[in-house]
Deep mutational scan, measured.
Amino acid sequence: NPITQSQFVPLGEVLCCAISDMNTAQIVVTQESLLERLMKHYPGIAIPSEDILYTTLGTLIKERKIYHTGEGYFIVTP
């Protein structure tokens, strides 16, 4: 039996792509809307728990890849 190979993409990278897409579409990015986006637009991805999502978003903020305001999460533009 051949083994199907899937590509590994770090969660942080997927979140940045999803946040960027949602920002472009002017969709408010909350943790809930982000999870919905992942389920709908990234089939096959293991949906992270709320704790993992929260921690990963926190890491992306520390790395200055995203920022959070009262209006949601946004990509940091250079």
Rank of each mutant, 00 (worst) to 15 (best):
N23V: 01
G12Y: 09
Q31C: 14
C17F: 06
V28Y: 06
Y42S: 11
L53V: 11
H41V: 07
T69F: 04
G44A: 10
L35M: 13
T77M: 09
E63H: 05
P2G: 03
G72P: 00
D51W: 05
H41S: 12
I27P: 00
P78A: 04
T55E: 11
A46D: 11
I61V: 14
V29P: 01
S6F: 08
M22S: 01
A46W: 04
P2N: 15
P10A: 12
T55M: 15
P78F: 03
L53A: 01
F8L: 10
N23P: 00
V29Q: 00
S6C: 10
N23L: 00
Y67I: 15
T55N: 10
H41L: 06
L53I: 05
N1V: 05
L34Q: 02
T4M: 13
L38E: 01
L35H: 08
Y42M: 06
T30D: 05
C16H: 05
L60M: 03
T55R: 13
K40Y: 08
Q31R: 13
N23W: 02
E50V: 11
V28D: 06
K65I: 04
S33T: 13
N23S: 02
V76A: 12
S6R: 12
N23M: 02
T24Y: 06
L15R: 01
T56V: 14
T77Y: 08
D21R: 05
L11Q: 00
E63D: 07
M22G: 01
M22I: 02
M22E: 00
S20P: 05
V29D: 01
P78G: 13
P2A: 02
E36M: 08
M22D: 00
C17N: 15
I66D: 01
L53Y: 06
A18I: 15
P43Q: 11
M22V: 00
H68S: 09
E13D: 11
R37Q: 06
R64W: 01
V29T: 03
Y67G: 06
I45W: 06
V76S: 15
Y42A: 06
E32W: 03
V29M: 00
L38I: 13
S49H: 06
F8D: 11
A18G: 02
E32S: 09
Q5W: 08
T4Q: 09
S33M: 03
V76E: 10
P43T: 07
T55I: 11
H68T: 12
T56E: 08
M22P: 01
I3W: 02
P78S: 13
K65S: 02
L34W: 00
A46Q: 06
V9M: 12
V9T: 14
T55K: 11
L15D: 01
R37M: 09
I61W: 02
T77F: 05
Y42L: 05
F74R: 12
G44N: 05
M22W: 00
I27T: 06
Q5S: 11
H68V: 08
C16R: 07
I45E: 05
P48L: 07
M39L: 09
S6Y: 10
M39W: 09
I61R: 04
G72I: 02
I19K: 01
Y54V: 15
I27F: 04
I47D: 05
E50F: 11
T69L: 02
C17D: 15
N1F: 06
R37T: 08
G44E: 11
K65H: 09
M39S: 12
I75R: 12
P43K: 08
I66C: 02
G12L: 12
I27N: 02
G44S: 12
C16S: 06
Y67H: 07
I45N: 07
E32Y: 04
M22C: 01
C16Y: 14
K40H: 11
L53W: 04
M39Q: 15
T69R: 07
V9W: 14
S6W: 04
E50D: 08
I66H: 00
Y73G: 09
V14L: 14
I66S: 01
E36K: 12
I66W: 02
T30V: 00
D21P: 01
T24G: 09
E71I: 04
C17T: 14
C16F: 09
G70K: 10
V29H: 00
R64E: 13
L53F: 03
C17R: 15
Y73K: 01
I52D: 14
D51Q: 11
L35D: 00
P78C: 05
L34C: 00
Y67R: 13
L11G: 02
Y42E: 12
T69K: 09
Q7K: 11
Y67C: 14
Y73N: 03
E36H: 06
M22K: 01
I3V: 12
S6G: 09
L35I: 15
V9I: 14
A25Y: 04
E71R: 09
L53S: 01
M39I: 10
D51H: 06
I19P: 00
C17K: 15
L15H: 00
I52W: 06
T59V: 12
H68E: 13
G70P: 14
V29L: 01
P2C: 11
I19G: 00
Y42D: 09
I3R: 08
G72C: 02
Q26G: 11
E36S: 09
G72H: 01
R64K: 14
C17G: 15
P10R: 13
V29R: 00
F8Y: 07
P48R: 02
C17S: 15
T56N: 05
I66Q: 04
Y67M: 07
L38P: 01
E50N: 13
A25Q: 12
Q26E: 11
E71L: 05
H41D: 10
T69Q: 05
Y54H: 11
I45D: 09
M39K: 14
Q31D: 05
P48S: 03
Q5L: 11
Y42I: 04
L35A: 07
L38F: 04
K65R: 12
P78E: 15
K65G: 02
I52M: 14
Q26M: 06
L34M: 03
G12Q: 15
E50T: 08
E32D: 08
P48M: 03
Y67T: 09
L15Y: 01
R37W: 13
A46I: 12
E63P: 00
G44V: 04
T56R: 03
T69S: 13
Y67D: 06
Q7G: 10
P43N: 08
D21A: 09
P10K: 14
E32I: 04
T4L: 09
I52F: 12
G58F: 10
L53D: 00
P2W: 08
I75T: 09
E13H: 05
A25D: 14
T30Y: 01
F8N: 15
E36G: 06
L15W: 02
